[in-house]
Design a protein around this nucleic acid. Structure first.
Lengths: 204, 204
DNA sequence: ATTAAATTTAACCATTTGGTTAATGCGAAG
DNA sequence: CTTCGCATTAACCAAATGGTTAAATTTAAT
């Protein structure tokens, strides 16, 4: 009868369970009962701590977004050379998504379904603004340090190569005949591979 | 009382409506009533023509996948030079997704939610196999035509840069301060931009 | 025109689902 | 020990939802 008490408080357990279920099934596909079961508590507790499904989802979503975006903002704002910035961004961003592989699809998917209000909901105070990086790229192009390239495309390319493999993991694994271990190993490689690929393309 | 008859048959209208609703809300988020309303017919018709929600979804999903993948397979199997293949793949693939911008997120999202059986369901006879392209890249590396690069990373990079912008369009538009027109224009540019970027990176 | 088959609809049904409530447990303060 | 407030649960509820059915309407064949 003695319940093992190593587990965290109810609220924390709910949050972890909700994260797991929402990430896997999305807002519409998740069932409150699933979350309660996953947390090992009564369903009414979900409403006791978080008023509604939407409210609970918003907490999870905000936490997910705050896990994804602030780091981006920090790095692109640093005062370092473009090549270093590319190396640092790709490496550190890969590290984040390797640890949270479900985050990107979760966030992007729900953004696309809720075309309204998510902006404020997502980045409370600090909307990531890549225009700084864009300006830096433009400047380096004009100074003749790198080949002429549209800064917007360069940023898009960089983000694409960092994030897309995680979004398309199941498809990639089929198309490229990979198991989970191989995939993980490839993602580790990409921490440096992406930057090299980009720099090789734009350096003179 | 005279009903205008310019509209297509019921079955076709259902398919179009289902595509629209499923694409926007996903399998779990879509309501049969939404689809019926969108098609302008009675809800029972959905079950008359397609037995269940799942069956209807499968039809839409298969059509979507068959719109996305066969072209990929065709191009990567062609007997042309690597650079030409990269140019052709990126250009033609961009053309497809520009016309169907919701397809990638729709397909990838549902794949991630249904980790089972989707393989057969998706590519009936022709599972796209990139190992041919991988071998071609490997061969060109060994022949010394291009810089040494992991073929798998190269293919990943190429696919990422083609598809990701469409998946992340709303986020990109915020982060990069773009409206729909600018986005569309950028995607047009990418038809050639991506290939140039890749080739610049790997050519000797 | 008559009949038979296919199509379409309104009403209905069973289940699922988010949410509520009232009672119970329980630990801390008095 | 009692009381009080927070935490927890089982039972319940109303709305939503996928699906069914039987009747009505249209279409096509004889």
């Amino acid at each position: 009868m003695v319940k093992v008490k190593k587990e965290a408080g109810a609220e924390q357990r709910i949050l972890e369970a909700a994260k797991k279920v929402f990430m896997q099934k999305g807002l519409a596909g998740a069932r409150m009962q699933d979350i309660a079961d996953e947390a090992g508590i009564n369903k009414a507790m979900l409403h006791y701590y978080f008023r509604s499904k939407d409210k609970l989802f918003e907490v999870i979503f905000k936490e997910a977004a705050s896990n994804l975006f602030p780091k981006m903002v920090a790095i692109i704002s640093e005062d370092i050379s473009l090549f270093d910035k590319i190396r640092k961004f790709t490496k550190e961003y890969l590290e984040i998504v390797i640890e949270n592989p479900y985050l990107p699809l979760f966030v992007l998917n729900e953004i696309n379904k809720q075309p309204v209000n998510f902006h404020a909901k997502m980045f409370g105070a600090k909307p990531p603004d890549f225009s700084l990086l864009v300006k830096q790229i433009d400047s380096e192009v004009k100074k003749g340090i790198i080949k002429p390239i549209s800064p917007v495309h360069l940023v898009m390319n960089m983000m694409s190569m960092c994030v897309f493999p995680f979004i398309s993991k199941p498809m990639l694994q089929i198309v490229m005949h990979m198991d989970d271990l191989q995939f993980r190993y490839l993602m580790e490689q990409r921490k440096t591979e992406i930057a090299n690929f980009i720099i090789d393309s734009i350096k003179k």
